[in-house]
Design a protein around this nucleic acid. Structure first.
Lengths: 216, 216
DNA sequence: CGTTTCAGTGTACGAATGTTCACTGACTTT
DNA sequence: AAAGTCAGTGAACATTCGTACACTGAAACG
């Protein structure tokens, strides 16, 4: 009534969250496929059948986790867009973009282990429905990234197709690094090394794209 | 005795192969984790306990499949190295390298669906032991590719570190495309589109690497 | 030819799985 | 204050799982 009381909907939402978290935690080794409704229920501390009050199947749970994970990923993209304003030369802008992107990646992966690992895992493994959902979301992210890139000075020469190809390359590479970052989370030296690799690759790719039309 | 006879070791090898093939086929949806010894046995047409005559666990089966899959991947790399000899300019050599690599990728993925899908899948999902094995093998492949790249004229400026970073980027991107190629195997238009994307990315990356030292 | 080896059989077991159904009791609504 | 809603319970089910064990019979061997 006053303040400590918990409304019924709040309670329900709380167990729903607990289920999602437990599923994320338990599927960390092995994909969603090796995740049993009963395991999740036990981890949450409810009886197996209670699961059905929130999700009709593991697949539906999976689709929810996909959406959640991509909220995290988009938050990272948003952060990556905010760069230091003290850029004078085009080259400084370039490095600023790369640094900001990789910093954002490292920071968000650190805070959101589970979501990034989930995306990397279920992208290729996982139930078909989930895999498809991840693929679709990734495509959207690539488009989003492509329009971001299109705002970089000097990118006017690129066709829409080029932009998508470039975005696809970047997204794929960064997902790989995200997974590596999760694995290396406990070893700071390793994290720094991966971050440096990501930076180098991003620079390579952008430089390559800049000199692009000169070839084909 | 004469010719139709089958020695005992041959018979054993035959069922062993059947088990490996069945496992590859059955794990196509969902990772190795969602693969039961009994499913495999039923698919092969033997009784469940017969499995143990060949592998002591699913993990061991998995490690064997990892080795097998990378034999396929290395075969692709070897093919990619053989390029048309009629290259005169440095630019023609470049395009020849890119074309040869992507053609090899498309051809081998077409013939070896299962192995490439297996690598893409178990790299992030799959039992820890298998994931580790895939990671290790990928590292070896990256080194191998790095020495290949080092033989390209104009690459003398790159440090060993640069080469590895570049190889890592290429391998990651190509594995992604391999998976996409498998999914699109039945739609030739889609296959062609993916191949073109792969070509474009490979060119971008190489061009980027060529203009590399000029920045950092 | 007699003996050994061993790939594959058949049974049996406890444990874990997804899903059903009728239930309870605290919160919400009237 | 009475009636209704509904998140969570608890028992029961048919399957499937990994694995232990004793076995069979044909190929390999001395």
């Amino acid at each position: 009534m006053t303040e400590t009381a918990e409304t019924r909907t709040e309670r329900k939402e709380r167990t729903r969250r607990a289920i999602l978290d437990a599923a994320l935690r338990l599927s960390a080794d092995g994909s969603l496929g090796v995740l049993s409704l009963r395991q999740v229920a036990k981890e949450v501390g409810v009886v197996p059948t209670a699961f059905y009050r929130h999700f009709s199947s593991i697949d539906e749970l999976g689709l929810t986790l996909v959406e959640e994970s991509f909220v995290s990923l988009r938050a990272m993209l948003r952060d990556a867009r905010t760069i230091a304003p003290d850029v004078d030369s085009a080259q400084a802008l370039f490095l600023a973009i790369v640094d900001s992107s990789v910093s954002s990646l490292v920071a968000h992966v650190h805070d959101d282990h589970a979501h990034f690992r989930f995306i990397a895992r279920e992208r290729f493994a996982g139930p078909p429905a989930v895999r498809e959902a991840v693929g679709h979301q990734l495509q959207l992210v690539e488009r989003e990234l492509a329009t971001d890139i299109a705002r970089i000075p000097g990118s006017e020469q690129w066709s829409g197709e080029d932009l998508l190809v470039l975005a696809n390359l970047i997204v794929t590479a960064m997902i790989g690094h995200a997974e590596a970052l999760v694995d290396a989370a406990a070893r700071p030296r390793e994290v720094a090394r991966i971050a440096e690799t990501a930076r180098a690759q991003l620079r390579m790719v952008l430089i390559g794209a800049l000199n692009w039309r000169s070839v084909s």
